[in-house]
Amino acid sequence: MTRSGTERRGSYAKGIAKREEILERALDVIAREGYRGASVKELADAVGLSQAGLLHYFDSKEELFTAILRKRDEVDSAGFGLYADDGSVVRGDVEKGFVAVIRHNADVPGLVQLFARLSVDAADPDHAAHAYFVERGRTLREAFAESLAARQAAGELTRAVDPAVLARIFQAVADGLQVQWMLEPDIDMAAITEALFTALDPRTARTEEAGRGAAS
């Protein structure tokens, strides 16, 4: 490889590394300062760049925030055991991992605010985050439906509802709870989600019937 080729390759690698540094620092800043407090200027200051220098790594402010959410998903997936190293879903931990992420969200309100705000704006097909939210929702539901189907086969979840529909219900509950939580911070999002799993477990109904029978 020529020297110019080596230099281009080195420059590209440095650019990727800087972009990753920006995203990692941005997660910390937004989690700490909140969505409204995390301006492009503050994010740029956190990584020692000018605002123009920061946006050199992204096409726009919206693209920057979309990349931050993608990084957040990457960190959460690795940290809470939602997926194995090969990208496949960890079936046995679907409830544990899903609920753990929801519980963790209560500790990072700024990122929840960013997600909620951007998800509304992304309804516009021309928005920078539109493809991200469509892709994220589809991938989440497909992986979740596979795990829910496994739980149905094991008798741990009702068979009355198709797993693909159940996956969409759980997604709607998680997203809706975030909005409710931003309005009423004392809501326990994780506990409510766990209650839904319990309500959909046929063993719960059998236990209740047995308890009523014993009491009569």
Rank of each mutant, 00 (worst) to 15 (best):
Y12A: 15
R141K: 14
A145D: 08
R25L: 08
S39D: 01
R138A: 13
L157R: 05
V108K: 13
A215M: 11
F115A: 12
L196P: 01
A131Y: 02
A205V: 13
L157G: 07
R91V: 15
E62R: 08
V47Q: 04
E156V: 04
A78E: 12
S88E: 13
F170D: 02
R36Q: 07
K14V: 09
D201C: 09
A123K: 09
T158F: 10
M189F: 01
A100C: 05
L157H: 08
K41M: 04
S11M: 13
Y12R: 15
L166P: 05
Y57R: 07
A190T: 08
R36V: 09
A153W: 04
H130A: 11
R203Q: 15
V108R: 14
W181A: 12
G81V: 09
A195Y: 02
F58A: 01
E184C: 11
L148N: 04
S119D: 04
D162K: 09
T2M: 13
P202W: 10
G79N: 14
V47R: 01
G87M: 12
G53E: 03
A129Q: 04
Q178A: 15
R9E: 14
A17N: 03
S77C: 06
A128E: 10
V89W: 03
D86R: 08
K41E: 12
G53V: 01
K41R: 13
I102T: 14
E142G: 09
I169R: 07
E42Y: 00
M182G: 07
Y12C: 00
D121M: 05
D85N: 08
A214K: 07
G34D: 05
S77N: 10
A174F: 04
D186N: 10
R70D: 05
E7R: 14
D175T: 09
A116T: 12
S50D: 00
R19K: 15
E63G: 06
L148F: 11
G87S: 11
L54N: 03
T193A: 13
A106S: 14
A67N: 04
L140Q: 09
Q171T: 05
S147M: 11
R25D: 01
I192M: 11
H56G: 02
G5V: 12
A122C: 05
A154G: 07
Y83R: 11
G110K: 06
E24Y: 07
K18S: 05
Q178N: 11
I187F: 07
I16Y: 01
L54S: 05
V134D: 07
P163W: 03
L43S: 06
F65M: 06
G137H: 07
R206A: 15
A128V: 05
L27E: 07
A100F: 02
V165G: 00
A13Y: 07
M189R: 13
Q178I: 01
